[in-house]
Amino acid sequence: MATQQAFNEALLKLAIMMYRIDGKIRLNEQELVDEIADNLSWDGVNSITAVQSQAMADVREAIRADKTEVYLAGLKDALMFDKQKALDTAKQIMQSDGEEAQKERRLYDYLRQQLLV
């Protein structure tokens, strides 16, 4: 069973993927991800900044290689710790800029209908 810390790390990675997937980095999306990070209780071996930096690189690579679903599948066990919060977070980021990009919607639907069921 996943731990709270594993969930927090996976949630942060999911949030970064959701705001990076459409290739348009909007300030309100970045601020929302920062707010999510600020509200996580953190007791990981690595600092939250280190996890964020590594996640940014990993997400960029997953998007470039068209492996976003594979990347998210790797987070599944940890996200299942609180799948409703994971889905709510993804939806919040998807809707934060007032428009749902097609890539954001596709990723959210994958989470909701296939991965976190």
Rank of each mutant, 00 (worst) to 15 (best):
K103T: 13
D82R: 07
A15H: 03
Q52T: 11
K85H: 12
S47N: 03
G44M: 08
M56P: 00
E100T: 11
Y19R: 07
E9G: 00
M94P: 01
M94C: 11
R105D: 09
A86G: 06
L32T: 10
N46F: 15
N46V: 04
T89V: 14
G44N: 13
E99H: 10
Q92M: 15
R106T: 15
A86P: 05
Q5I: 04
Q30S: 10
Q92A: 14
E100G: 08
L14M: 05
D22P: 08
A50I: 05
Y71M: 00
L87P: 05
A15D: 03
R26Q: 15
L40P: 11
Q4N: 09
T49P: 00
A55C: 06
S53C: 08
N46D: 15
K83C: 02
L14S: 05
Q92T: 14
V51W: 02
I36T: 06
K91I: 04
A90V: 08
R105S: 10
K24P: 00
A62N: 05
T68P: 00
W42I: 09
L32H: 06
L116S: 12
Q114F: 06
Y71A: 01
Q95E: 15
Q114P: 00
Q52A: 08
A57Q: 14
L32F: 06
E9R: 04
T49Q: 14
T3I: 01
Q114G: 00
Q114A: 07
Q95N: 15
E100A: 11
L27W: 02
L27H: 12
V51I: 12
E29P: 02
T3G: 06
N39I: 01
V45M: 08
L79N: 05
E69Q: 07
A2Y: 03
Q102M: 13
K85A: 15
D38W: 04
S47D: 05
L40F: 09
M18A: 03
I25D: 09
L27T: 10
G98S: 09
A50C: 02
R112C: 02
I36L: 12
L116G: 10
S47T: 15
R64T: 12
M80D: 08
L75C: 01
M17F: 12
D58T: 02
Q30T: 10
A90Y: 11
V51E: 03
M1I: 07
I48V: 12
Q30L: 11
G23Q: 02
L12Y: 02
